[in-house]
C-alpha cells in the first residue's frame, strides 16, 4: 500500500476526489448514481479519453502537441471522403484509413521536431495552423452529412433496459476507448519501447548516452498520438453522425488540461493511463453532475474551469516541494535541451 501511494500519488488523490464528488452528487441528486448515468458519462467521455491517452505518450516522452485535435478533423474528412470514393467500405477499412492518415500527420510533427530541430510546441502550433487552415480552405467549411450507413449507425455491443425504463448501452466508442487504453497502457509499461519513452522524457541526455535511439522516440510517440487522434476522429464522426471541419477545434487544450490534471507532467517522464482516464472523467462527471443538479449549462464551463484551476495550482504547490532540488535542476536542464 505504501508503495502504491509512493508510486501513484496523483492518481490516488484524483481517485479520492472523484469518489468524493460522486458521493456528493449521489446524495445531491437522485439520478446520478444509476448505472445508466454512469454509461452516459462513459459514452460522452470516450473520444476525449482516446485523445488523452495518445497525448499522454507524447507528454511522457517530454514533448507537447497542440495539433492533434485539428489533425483528427483532417482525418475525419479524408477518411469519409476516401470511404465514399471507395463506395462505402466497412469498419476495418475505416479504421485502417483513419489510423494511417492520423499516424502520417503525427509523423510529420515528429519529422519537424527531430530532423528540423524545431521545439515541439512551436512545431505543433505551426502544424495546427497548417492543418486547420488547409482543411477549412479545401472544404470551404462545408460539413459532410451523408456518411456511409455503417459509420452513421449506432453500434451497440450490449444494451439492457433497467427497471426504471432507462437504458444501459455499451457503445462502440466506449469499447474502442477501452481497447486504446489497454494498448497504450501495455505499450508504455510492458514494452521496452515504452520504458525508453519514459527514460527519454525523464532525462534526455542520460538516455542519449545509453544509446537510446532518439529519432525512434520522436517517431513512436508522435506516431502513437497520431494513431489515437485518427481513431478518435473516426469515433467522433460516428458519435456525431456527421463530419464538421471545425467541430474539434479547441479540443486540444481541454484534453491537455485533463491529461495534466491526471498527473502527466509537462517536461516528460511521468504519467499513467489511469491518471489520464480519471482526469477526463473528473471533468465529465462534474459537467454531468451540474447538469443533473439543474445548473445552467452556461455556468458549466466556468465551474469546470475553476475546478481545474484549483486542482492544478494545488497539486503543483505540493509536488514541487516533493521533488528533490538536484532533480528539479536536472529536469529543467533536460527541458532546455529537448
Amino acid at each position: 500500500m505504501r508503495r502504491l501511494i509512493q508510486s501513484k500519488p496523483t492518481e490516488l488523490t484524483l481517485l479520492a476526489v472523484t469518489v468524493l464528488l460522486c458521493l456528493g452528487l449521489s446524495v445531491g441528486t437522485d439520478r446520478f448514481l444509476t448505472i445508466a448515468n454512469a454509461f452516459d458519462v462513459l459514452n460522452v467521455s470516450a473520444v476525449n479519453i482516446i485523445f488523452a491517452v495518445g497525448l499522454l505518450v507524447v507528454l511522457i516522452s517530454g514533448g507537447i502537441d497542440i495539433s492533434f485535435a485539428v489533425a483528427a478533423s483532417v482525418v475525419q474528412y479524408v477518411t469519409v471522403l476516401a470511404l465514399l470514393t471507395l463506395g462505402g467500405g466497412n469498419w476495418a477499412v475505416g479504421f485502417i484509413i483513419a489510423g494511417c492518415v492520423g499516424m502520417g500527420l503525427g509523423l510529420i510533427n515528429a519529422f519537424l521536431i527531430y530532423r528540423l530541430q524545431i521545439i515541439s510546441i512551436v512545431a505543433t502550433i505551426s502544424t495546427f495552423n497548417v492543418f486547420f487552415g488547409l482543411l477549412m480552405f479545401v472544404t470551404k467549411g462545408v460539413s459532410i452529412y451523408n456518411l456511409p450507413d455503417w459509420l452513421a449507425t449506432r453500434f451497440v455491443f450490449f444494451e439492457h433496459e433497467m427497471a426504471d425504463g432507462s437504458w444501459i448501452e455499451l457503445t462502440l466508442p466506449v469499447v474502442v476507448m477501452i481497447l486504446c487504453c489497454i494498448a497504450t497502457s501495455f505499450m508504455i509499461s510492458r514494452t521496452t519501447t515504452g520504458r525508453k519513452l519514459y527514460a527519454f522524457g525523464d532525462n534526455p541526455e542520460g538516455a542519449r548516452r545509453f544509446g537510446i535511439n532518439i529519432a525512434a522516440m520522436h517517431y513512436v510517440s508522435f506516431g502513437w498520438l497520431g494513431l489515437m487522434a485518427g481513431i478518435a476522429g473516426l469515433m467522433q464522426a460516428h458519435y456525431a453522425q456527421e463530419v464538421v471541419p471545425n467541430a474539434l477545434y479547441g479540443r486540444e487544450l481541454d484534453v491537455l488540461a485533463a491529461t495534466v490534471l491526471g498527473g502527466a507532467r509537462l517536461g516528460g517522464g511521468k504519467g499513467s493511463v489511469l491518471g489520464c482516464v480519471l482526469g477526463v472523467l473528473l471533468v465529465s462527471i462534474t459537467q454531468n453532475g451540474l447538469n443533473l443538479m439543474g445548473v445552467s449549462p452556461f455556468a458549466f464551463k466556468m465551474i469546470v474551469g475553476a475546478i481545474i484551476l484549483a486542482a492544478i495550482t494545488l497539486s503543483s504547490t505540493r509536488f514541487d516541494k516533493l521533488l528533490p532540488k538536484a532533480l528539479q535542476n536536472s529536469v529543467r536542464k533536460g527541458n532546455h535541451r529537448s
Binding site: 487544450l253 481541454d254 464551463k301 466556468m302 474551469g305 484551476l309
Partner: peptide
C-alpha cells in the same frame, strides 16, 4: 485553466 474559466 484560466482560459477555460474565463471562457465559461
Amino acid at each position: 485553466s484560466m482560459m477555460i474559466f474565463l471562457r465559461g
